[in-house]
Every structure is written in structure tokens, then in C-alpha cells.
Design a protein around this nucleic acid. Structure first.
Lengths: 209, 209
DNA sequence: TCGGCTAGATTGACTGGTCAATCAGCCAGT
DNA sequence: ACTGGCTGATTGACCAGTCAATCTAGCCGA
């Protein structure tokens, strides 16, 4: 076989290896779910030896935590930005919804794993990461509370409840795409954000239409 | 020890035994979650031998399925009743929310198990029972669709999306009680139903208030 | 330039512990 | 004395995490 003249396979850097393992984990977690996947599945998908996973991560659980934390901190950062911006509450909620929907659009497997295995998995990772998850709810609640103070939104509904419901609606939205109950097309993605905001902010009353 | 004169322990009927096992399962599933509970935990809680669980049920999974199906069919029946009733959509959704909240009020452990282990557990029982779960969403969607046709509700939001969001909000509501983020008091129970309906049907617009 | 040397990366067979499910009988009630 | 509800020790499968051995890159002194 003709080999290149100098080197044919430069060994990947530690960072690249780590990334390869994380990316492989996204693929297999998305395909089979967290619990049914064996560590060897991750290693095989990444094309590395079983033991190497433990060289870069302390446990299978740590791999999952890394995936979640990495992405969720982006979401929280975006939320803080939006919260501080000078816009109507409606626009702010629209941007948060849009950010999440775009995350799904560009990285459906990762978002599937995060929604199914963490956010909705109240007894496993959802329990562990409750504080971070709540922080996202609280951002929405804060936006709503401020808008209630200024009179932009009616004040007779608990803002914490709105925050939870907002994410409840979004979870259901993504779940429907994940389980292919609704086609995950660009048109759906574009329409979905507006729908969440309309439902939560605008309600269903015809006086509004 | 003074024993009664005739019989001290009439052996429980088969039906009673079966019930005792199901009730024990509710307690331990609610306490520890489905996956971490061993079949011996159920047997111990019920005060029966390990093997007896397998006399009445084919597997640990079958116990869980029975718990879910038993209760969910009540919910679906109630939903059909409400759907057919002669009321406004607002009232109908209020009754469905009220039914679920009352279920939690009177049987918090069972509802905890159903919400956490089935409804929100998209990768285990949630997957298995998706068709039945969807049926509940569809009832809400049908109520909304009819109200849209009659003009009671605005028509520019997909009723299927409303159905999913409605249950998304309720899931979050119950989850908050389950994890004691919000006190599960009678006042909360009474207020919660109205809040769901207001948010989903009434929206947040002050023009409405 | 070359060989030896070390640290860190990489390998995968193996171990230990966990349970779900089975099954060979036991015994209470008739 | 029979029979079917009932018992619980046993078995078999599974898999996360360990670890001793091997490899490789790059450094250093001759």
C-alpha cells in the first residue's frame, strides 16, 4: 500500500480525542438513550479503546453531565443577555424560544439527549441538574415579573408558574419533533417560536386577534 | 399472646393480594423511582414473598404498566365525558385540569409515579405508552379545535400544539409539587387549575383582565 | 545523527456486584 | 391427602469501572 512520504496518521491531540468521545456519546445516547448504552458503545462509536473513555472522563455519568453542562450554560448565558436587553417581554420570550429552537435545528441529536435524558428525566439527571434547569425557568419568570410591574402583562398569574409553563410547552414542542409526531422541517421551526409566544403571551382570546 | 377464638388471620383473597402488591409498588416507586427499586422492595413493602409478585404479575414492568393503565384510563374516560358536555372550551379545560389536580390531591404518590416514570420518561414507559398519552393531548386539541370553529377561541394557533402545551404546563405544575419547589397545599391546588386555564385560554394580555 | 529513556496515551481482559426471573418444593385450607 | 397459593434460595446475564501491560512521541546526552 502506498503510504505518504512523511507521516500518514498524526496522532490526534488530547482535546480532539476528548471531543471525539463526547461527539460519539451524543450519537449513541440519541440513538439508544442513556441507560441502555454501554460504555463500550461510546468507545466503539468514537473508534477508541474501552479504557480510554475512563482516561478522559471519570464515569459514564460524567460524560453525560459534560454534554448537558456545556450546552445548558450557553442557554443560560443567552437568557441573561436577553433578560437585560431593551425590548418588550413578548420579544424577549420570542428570542429565548428562538434560541432553543435554533439549537435543535442545528444540533438535533444533542438537544434530543438533553431534553429526553436530563430536562424531562426528573428521576435521574433532571434531579441532579435541577438547580441549573430552574435558573432557566427563573429567567423567564423574571422577564414576566418585570413586564407585570410595568403593566405590559396582566398581573394575576404567578410569574414562576409562567416560567415553568413556558418551558413545559417548549419541551413538548421538541419532544414532538424528536418522536416524529410532527415533521421537523424548516417551516415548522420558523412557525414554532411564534406559536409559543402567542400562546403564552397572547393567549387564545379572539379579542386579541 | 391472646389470639381470637375462631380465626385470627383469614387469608386475603387473590384480589386483595394483587391490590396489596400494586399499592406497595406505588409506595416504593414513589419513594425511590422505578429503576432503583428491586422487586424485593415491592414484596417487602407488601409483606409477601418475593416470588409472589411473579405469581400475580409477569414482570416488574408489568406492575408499572398496570398502575399507569388503571389510572390513565380513568383520565381518558373523564376527558371523553368533558369533551361531550355542553360547556365553553374554557370550562371544559378547567374541568380536565381540575380532574388531574384532584387526582394528585387525593393520590399524590400514584400521580407522582405516573408523571415522573411514564408521562415525562420519554425513553422508557413514556415511549411504550405514547399512544395513550397522545389520546389525552388529542382530547384537549379536539376541544380547542371545536371552539375555534365556533369562534370562541382564536384560530391562528394549531390546536394540537395547544393540547401538548396544556399538558406540558400541567406536568410542570405537578412536578413542582412533587419536588417541593412549591408547597402542595389546598390553596395551591385550588388556585392551580384556574391558573392553567387563564394562562392557556386567557393569555397574559391586560386587555383581557 | 542516533539510541535510550520517560511520561503520558492507549489497550482490552477481567472482576465484582447487582438483580430480574425461575423453580422445586412447602403448607394451609378444604 | 390433595391442590394451588405461596415461598425464597439460586441462577444466569449484564456491565461499569479497574488495571497491568503496551505503545508512542519527543527529549537528551553522546
Amino acid at each position: 500500500m502506498s503510504e505518504g512520504p512523511t507521516r500518514t496518521k498524526p496522532r490526534p491531540s488530547a482535546e480532539e480525542r476528548r471531543r471525539a468521545i463526547l461527539d460519539a456519546a451524543i450519537v449513541v445516547f440519541a440513538r439508544q438513550g442513556y441507560h441502555p448504552t454501554r460504555v463500550s458503545d461510546i468507545a466503539d462509536e468514537a473508534g477508541v479503546a474501552y479504557g480510554l473513555v475512563y482516561h478522559y472522563f471519570s464515569s459514564k455519568e460524567a460524560v453525560m453531565n459534560e454534554l448537558f453542562t456545556e450546552r445548558w450554560s450557553l442557554l443560560l448565558d443567552a437568557g441573561e443577555q436577553v433578560k437585560a436587553a431593551d425590548r418588550t417581554a413578548r420579544e424577549k420570550l420570542g428570542e429565548i424560544a428562538g434560541f432553543i429552537i435554533d439549537s435543535y435545528r442545528h444540533n438535533p441529536e444533542l438537544m434530543k439527549v438533553i431534553i429526553i435524558e436530563v430536562t424531562r428525566a426528573a428521576n435521574s439527571f433532571g434531579r441532579t441538574h435541577l438547580p441549573e434547569i430552574r435558573r432557566a425557568y427563573d429567567q423567564v419568570a423574571a422577564i414576566v415579573a418585570e413586564a407585570q410591574r410595568s403593566g405590559e402583562l396582566r398581573s394575576d398569574i404567578d410569574p414562576d408558574f409562567v416560567g415553568r409553563s413556558f418551558y413545559g410547552a417548549i419541551e413538548q414542542l421538541l419532544s414532538a419533533w424528536v418522536f416524529e409526531l410532527v415533521p421537523a422541517t424548516d417551516e415548522e421551526f420558523d412557525a414554532a417560536g411564534a406559536m409559543v409566544v402567542e400562546l403564552i403571551c397572547g393567549g387564545l382570546d379572539p379579542r386579541d386577534a
